[in-house]
Design a binder for these strands. Structure first.
Length: 212
DNA sequence: ACCCAGGGTCATA
DNA sequence: TATGACCATGGG
C-alpha cells in the first residue's frame, strides 16, 4: 500500500487549505512560517475583525498597527514587513485575478523574488491558492520519508520537489491532499523523537534509520 | 522550565 | 555552498 493511501486511511480527508479566499490562503502561508497554525488563526482573526484582510488595508496600515494584529502569530516585526512586501507585490502585479493567468514557472520565480517568500511558502501559494501542480516540501515531509528510508533527509529543496513531482505526476488534487495529510500526520503523532508509540501508521514512525 | 511549531534572511567562512 | 544566529508567540 502506498504511503499516500496509508496516510489517508489513518487520517481521513483533510480538505485543505483552511481559508475562504485565495488572498486569505496566501496570508496564512506567510504567517505560518515556523509557527503553529493555531497562532496564525488568531492573527488572521484580528485582521478580519479590523476589516484589514485585504492587500490595500495591509499596505496602508502603519507598522505598529500591523504588528498589533500579527502579534499572536509570532515573529511579528518580521512578518509585518513580509506581509506588506507581499501585498505590495500583489497590487503592483494588478491583483490575484491577473496573476492567476501566469504560467506556473513564471509565477514561481516572481513569488520567490518577493522578500520573505521562500520555496515552501511559494509552493503553498502555488498549490493552494493558484491550484498549480506543485508538491510542497516541508520539515514533516523530510522527517517522515527519512524514517521510511526513502530519502537521506538533507537533500536540497528542489531535488526533493522534483523527486515527488516526477513520481506522482501532475495531479493538483493529489498534491493538495498529500501535503495536508503529511502535516496532519506530523501534527498528531509523528513527533521529532526517534519514533512514537501512538502512531497508527507504525511503519511511518518506527525509524528504519538504524542509529539514534 | 523547557520544547516546538505547516521558514526565511542575513552574516560569516 | 554551507552552516549558524536570529526572529517571538502560545500550547504541550
Amino acid at each position: 500500500m502506498s504511503v499516500y493511501r496509508r496516510l489517508h486511511a489513518a487520517h481521513g480527508p483533510q480538505f485543505w487549505w483552511p481559508g475562504d479566499t485565495r488572498f486569505e490562503i496566501m496570508v496564512g502561508a506567510v504567517l505560518t512560517q515556523n509557527t503553529a497554525w493555531s497562532n496564525v488563526e488568531k492573527a488572521i482573526a484580528n485582521l478580519r475583525a479590523a476589516k484589514a484582510l485585504t492587500p490595500h488595508a495591509i499596505v496602508a496600515a502603519p507598522h505598529r498597527q500591523l504588528v498589533s494584529w500579527l502579534k499572536p502569530s509570532g515573529y511579528f516585526n518580521i512578518k509585518a514587513k513580509r506581509l506588506r512586501a507581499f501585498c505590495a507585490w500583489l497590487l503592483q502585479q494588478g491583483g490575484v485575478r491577473r496573476l492567476a493567468h501566469w504560467p506556473t514557472d513564471r509565477l514561481r520565480e516572481a513569488l520567490l523574488a518577493v522578500h520573505g517568500v521562500g520555496p515552501e511558502t511559494a509552493d503553498d501559494i502555488l498549490l493552494y491558492a493558484f491550484e498549480r501542480p506543485v508538491f510542497v516540501i516541508d520539515a514533516y515531509t523530510r522527517r517522515i520519508f527519512m524514517r521510511l528510508g526513502l530519502i537521506e533527509g538533507r537533500e536540497k529543496y528542489e531535488v526533493l520537489r522534483k523527486l515527488f513531482e516526477d513520481r506522482l505526476g501532475d495531479d493538483v488534487t493529489l498534491f493538495n491532499e498529500y501535503h495536508a495529510l503529511i502535516v496532519a500526520h506530523g501534527k498528531d503523532v509523528c513527533r521529532p523523537r526517534p519514533h512514537c508509540t501512538r502512531c497508527r501508521l507504525r511503519p511511518l514512525c518506527a525509524s528504519p534509520v538504524a542509529n539514534n
